[in-house]
Amino acid sequence: MAPGPTADVWYSLFNLYTTAAVAINILIIIIFIYFLYKYRGYRADSSAGGIDAKKLAIVFVIVSAIIFYSLEFYTLNAMRFVEEVPENPDMVIEVDAFQWAWKFIYPNGTESLGTLKVPRGTLVLFKVTSLDVHHKFGIPALKASIDAVPGRINYLWVRFDEPGTYTVRCYELCGLGHANMMAQIIVT
């Protein structure tokens, strides 16, 4: 079972892209290797090969446009789902990123450095900002992430469906402590 809806959406989109990429690449690579093998030192027809390049190009453009734009359609759906800021979140948490730690501020004003406790199944809205340089707030298990930009508040919603301890990491180079800029989210 996936730990939350954001991860569900992300992985199903990822699998869709991977299916398309693997299928197309295998097809092309098989043709490629077959040609390389078959026509190695081949001496028959060295001029034209009888390929109508124009037709080939047109067919390819149409086929690939259909593939790419249908992938894009699913992308835009997923994007709207994960980016839609919920109107009535169960909990609004302010996240202040700074060199090199995360500060969480609960709705009642309590501050916590590096640890956040949330009950399982709550819809949490993070209001993410940075106090100094550009950071990126990311929760790997939920595939949920947003930039922490100085002077700007970005919104990110998540729901933890599974209890456990989740790691938060910084995903934008922010100086010497970048590698160790982590926090824990404890879901009970």
């Binding site: 092309i28 043709i31 490629f32 040609f35 390389l36 026509y39 190695r40 030192g41 081949y42 001496r43 028959a44 027809d45 060295s46 090969g49 009888g50 390929i51 390049a53 080939l56 190009a57 390819f60 453009v61 690939s64 446009a65 790419f68 734009y69 992938l71 894009e72």
Partner: peptide, 23 residues
């Protein structure tokens, strides 16, 4: 996404060049 299409055309032409060539 669109920028993948012209590169696809170009790559396909390269593969088509191999067809019945003297490799």
């Amino acid at each position: 996404e669109t920028i993948s299409i012209p590169f696809g055309v170009a790559t396909l032409s390269v593969i088509a060049t191999l067809y019945k060539g003297r490799i």
